[in-house]
Simulated scan of single mutants.
Amino acid sequence: MKVYEAYLDIETTGLSPIYSDITVIGIYLENSEDSIFIQLIGDDITPYNLSYIMEKVHTIYTYNGSRFDLPFINAKLGINLEDYAFHEDLMYRCWKRGLYGGLKKVEERLGIERKLKEVDGRMAVILWYKYIRHNDINALRLLLEYNKEDVMNLKILKEKLYSF
C-alpha cells in the first residue's frame, strides 16, 4: 500500500551522470500519521536502498526533478522513480504562476527562509570532496544540512503553490 508523499533532492559531483556521481539523496516521507527524513550518502546510495524507501510512496515532489534528479538517478542506479510513484515537478507549477529561476530564487520570491544562504550546488561539490579527500566531517555535516534544507523547502514550496 502506497501511503507516503515524498520530497526528493539529490546532490552530485557534477551535472552529467556520465562523468559525475550522486553523493546524497535526501527524501522526506510524510503522511497524515507520521513523517521521516532519510539521507542516503555515498556507498549507501544503492538501487536496493532507494527502491526500499520508494515502495510506499504514491507521489514524489521535486524541483527540476524531471530534467535533473530523476534522469540522474535512472542513469546511475537504473531506477525510474516514475515506475514507483506519480511525480510532480514543482518547477512547472511555479512557471504557471510566473515564478522562474532556480529553487533558491523562487524561495526568495515567495518568502521561504533559507539558513544556508552561502551554500549552493557548486559549494555542495566542494563540501563532498573535502569530506572524501580529507575526512572533513564538518564539510559532510554542512552538505547534509544543505540537502535537508533543499528537501524540506520543497514541502513549504508545495504548500505555498497549492494555497494560491
Results as ranks from 00 to 15, higher is better:
43 D>I: 08
164 F>E: 12
122 R>Q: 10
62 T>V: 04
147 N>C: 02
94 C>R: 04
79 I>Q: 00
111 G>P: 05
112 I>L: 00
120 D>W: 15
107 E>H: 00
32 S>A: 13
28 Y>P: 02
20 S>P: 05
36 I>G: 07
139 A>Q: 11
16 S>I: 03
90 L>I: 04
80 N>W: 00
143 L>N: 01
9 D>A: 11
41 I>H: 09
75 A>C: 07
92 Y>A: 01
159 E>Y: 02
30 E>Y: 15
38 I>S: 07
158 K>F: 01
139 A>L: 00
87 H>M: 05
134 H>W: 12
79 I>N: 06
46 T>L: 04
38 I>Y: 11
33 E>T: 13
120 D>T: 15
34 D>N: 10
2 K>I: 08
111 G>D: 15
51 S>Y: 06
29 L>Y: 06
3 V>S: 13
64 N>D: 14
146 Y>R: 14
19 Y>P: 03
107 E>C: 05
73 I>D: 07
40 L>R: 12
50 L>E: 01
44 D>R: 15
27 I>D: 00
71 P>D: 15
71 P>V: 10
72 F>M: 06
54 M>V: 02
100 Y>V: 03
45 I>E: 06
64 N>R: 09
79 I>C: 00
48 Y>W: 03
105 K>D: 04
147 N>V: 04
21 D>R: 12
106 V>T: 05
140 L>G: 03
48 Y>C: 04
60 I>T: 04
83 D>C: 07
109 R>N: 09
1 M>K: 12
16 S>Q: 01
125 V>G: 06
16 S>A: 07
66 S>A: 15
53 I>E: 09
96 K>R: 14
162 Y>N: 10
36 I>W: 06
53 I>S: 07
67 R>D: 14
40 L>G: 08
100 Y>S: 04
93 R>H: 03
119 V>R: 13
100 Y>L: 06
8 L>T: 04
12 T>Y: 11
33 E>M: 11
50 L>F: 00
109 R>P: 02
146 Y>T: 07
147 N>S: 06
84 Y>C: 03
104 K>H: 05
118 E>A: 15
32 S>Y: 05
89 D>F: 04
95 W>F: 14
25 I>S: 14
57 V>Q: 01
56 K>C: 03
81 L>V: 02
116 L>M: 13
